[in-house]
Nucleic acid binder design. Structure first.
Lengths: 150, 150
DNA sequence: ATAAAATAAATCGTTCGCGATATAATCGCA
DNA sequence: TGCGATTATATCGCGAACGATTTATTTTAT
């Protein structure tokens, strides 16, 4: 199958598309594995990521969330409105700088964290990998992302 | 920062969300890096993946494409209609089994492959990684996906 | 031979995600 | 001071992506 020669650009077309595809399909796989666990919390996977960021640090601007999640306001604004409608967060213009919107957890949103603690255990189990391997892989992929966005 | 103790479920909430998030954001990063390269071909990133699969093996059913790409017909059908409208593929009911739709490259679609050969080189460069490392990482992520979907 | 089960795509409604653009507030500088 | 540039968020249109359902065809079992 694999030849010792320098791969032609035709071979590369396949080869390299595979790393991106591995990531693309692994991402879908994560979405699917998370779904049943998150259904209980009535959160989608991207919404869950927003909540994780807020559980770590409450009271952030839309821009700050976007920086951490690598998302644009055009993606976040509608998502945050849904989370607000569900009663998990509030969105309030900053008094000092009315351009900014401060996103804060409600008591319900904060309380959700306890129920969410069960989620990661389920995921870690689903990967079937050792914590150390997971950490190493995570770091490598994060480095890859950083290179890509450079 | 890191303690030697067994991580609590609260710590895990952060830790484990990171592998999924690393993948999630790396996937977005790939989409962004591909975009300018694919704009010339008038393909989106998912459409490009479909074309890659067809360049490898022409004349496949919707189901076969879905198996390889891990996508449902509800995702593929509209995408394939767009590729058909662009003149890159044809969609024809199979005479032998009218339930199936056979997807075939047009001459234009086949010809596109040559122009697409430039794409992977650009991506490989953007990762800044050695081919061997890329291959290893790809394999690890593919294994992870397989575990998740088990 | 035909009714029931299974299979393959397509359709529908919802959520994400982006780029381009709009709106509104603040900043900087003449 | 006040006006142009910058910044923060929101809006819009489009293309994925999924689950649930529908339609059409084929297979199977009776």
């Amino acid at each position: 199958m694999a030849k010792a020669d320098t791969p032609s650009s035709e071979d590369l077309l396949k080869l390299d598309s595979f790393l991106c595809f591995a990531i693309y399909s692994a991402n879908h796989a994560f979405t699917r594995v998370y779904k049943p666990l998150l259904d209980d919390l009535e959160l989608t996977y991207p919404q869950y990521l927003v909540m994780v960021v807020l559980w770590e640090k409450d009271d952030q601007t839309v821009g700050s969330l976007g920086e951490k999640l690598f998302l644009e306001s055009s993606t976040l604004t509608p998502m945050l409105k849904r989370l607000e409608a569900m009663g998990y967060i509030t969105r309030v213009r900053d008094r000092m700088d009315e351009r900014q919107v401060r996103v804060r957890l409600t008591d319900t949103g904060r309380a959700l964290r306890h129920r969410a603690n069960a989620v990661p255990l389920g995921i870690a189990g689903a990967t079937g990998m050792e914590p150390a391997d997971l950490a190493r892989l995570r770091a490598e992929i994060a480095a890859l992302r950083a290179s890509l966005l450079r």
